[in-house]
Amino acid sequence: MKPPHVLGRRPRVVVIGGGTGLSVMLRGLKERPLDITAIVTVADDGGSSGILRSEMQMPPPGDIRNVLIALADAEPLLAQTLQYRFKEGTGLAGHSLGNLMLAAMREITGDFVTGVRELSRVLAVRGRVLPAAAHAIELKAEMEDGSIIEGESKIPLAGGRIKRVFIEPADVSPLQEAVEALIEADAILVGPGSLYTSILPNLLVPQIARTIVESQAVKIFICNVMTQPGETDGYSVSDHLNAVRLHVGEDLFDYVIVNNGEIPPQVQDRYAEKGATVVHLDLDEVTKKGYKVIADKLVLFRTYLRHDANRLSHHIYQLVESWMLKKG
């Protein structure tokens, strides 16, 4: 049987999340013969994104910007320019040029989603980038001590353990294009990224999780390599999966991709200074819940630990290919 990408179309892959981890993975995936749609969180309320969100009543552009650049066929200097953050200037300091361009495109086109689409065309983005909702949402967390923390940027700084997160308005309308992409998907990937502040805000948008549950696509969770201080302190792989189930009410995934490569002690020590530790792979607990696990050496270390985009995309592509062949 022929591979799926020569059966008349490329496999349709939807990736859900936000933050640096998602962008790293997309840099690898865009080199594969895949039709990619990225659904990105609109809960960010800190820094440049937070200011533009508040002053211009628009969805926060930061995560969208990072994903656009990751998927773009842009010259390195252009990508660097879009990521440039101004250091001086009243009202300008702290803003990235890419965020300001997205704000300008919204003003020019009259609509944030259209602005993202047009900037995607200018940057020759390989795939589609969609916000989970057309409007910004506010993320709140109920902590284990019963207190409520308001705002995505404040949650990791609260210093307690998170019981659950929720969004307001709870009935925000999902972007219809995002729902349609999930319905048509051959594979749905969730993560990597901040569990409570990048991943779950997408899944809490009405219809998003329900559409994933009902989808016949292969569903894959890419687990973080390190815990995140203030969010997932001490979490194992199964703890991440349990948190998703707690929030959406069902198990979403067929496969879990995790790192089992050795992380040098000096690197672990550097992360430990900031309160982060290696996410423990409790394999028996994960497989007992019915998940299939793909474990490999998936990290690179330069200044920070990052997923090895090439190896990660290789595993994802193999999974998608075998799933499609199985479906016929």
Results as ranks from 00 to 15, higher is better:
108 I>F: 09
92 L>F: 13
139 L>Q: 02
53 R>T: 06
42 V>Q: 11
41 T>D: 01
22 L>W: 06
65 R>V: 00
70 A>H: 01
25 M>G: 05
62 G>H: 03
27 R>W: 02
123 L>F: 07
10 R>C: 14
119 L>C: 04
54 S>T: 09
10 R>N: 11
55 E>K: 13
118 E>V: 08
132 A>P: 01
113 V>K: 02
55 E>D: 12
125 V>S: 05
54 S>L: 10
32 R>I: 08
117 R>Q: 11
22 L>D: 04
118 E>I: 04
93 A>L: 14
119 L>G: 10
20 T>F: 12
91 G>M: 12
136 A>S: 15
116 V>W: 03
134 A>I: 04
107 E>C: 06
31 E>L: 13
128 R>D: 05
100 L>D: 00
54 S>H: 12
141 A>G: 06
51 I>Y: 12
103 A>D: 01
58 M>K: 05
64 I>V: 13
70 A>P: 03
89 G>F: 12
23 S>E: 01
96 S>L: 09
112 F>V: 05
132 A>Y: 05
16 I>M: 11
44 D>A: 06
80 Q>A: 12
24 V>A: 07
48 S>A: 08
94 G>V: 03
128 R>W: 08
138 E>C: 06
63 D>N: 08
86 F>R: 13
49 S>R: 12
52 L>T: 07
136 A>D: 08
98 G>P: 00
73 D>A: 07
126 R>C: 12
49 S>P: 06
69 I>A: 01
54 S>N: 09
44 D>Y: 11
94 G>R: 14
88 E>I: 05
65 R>L: 01
112 F>L: 05
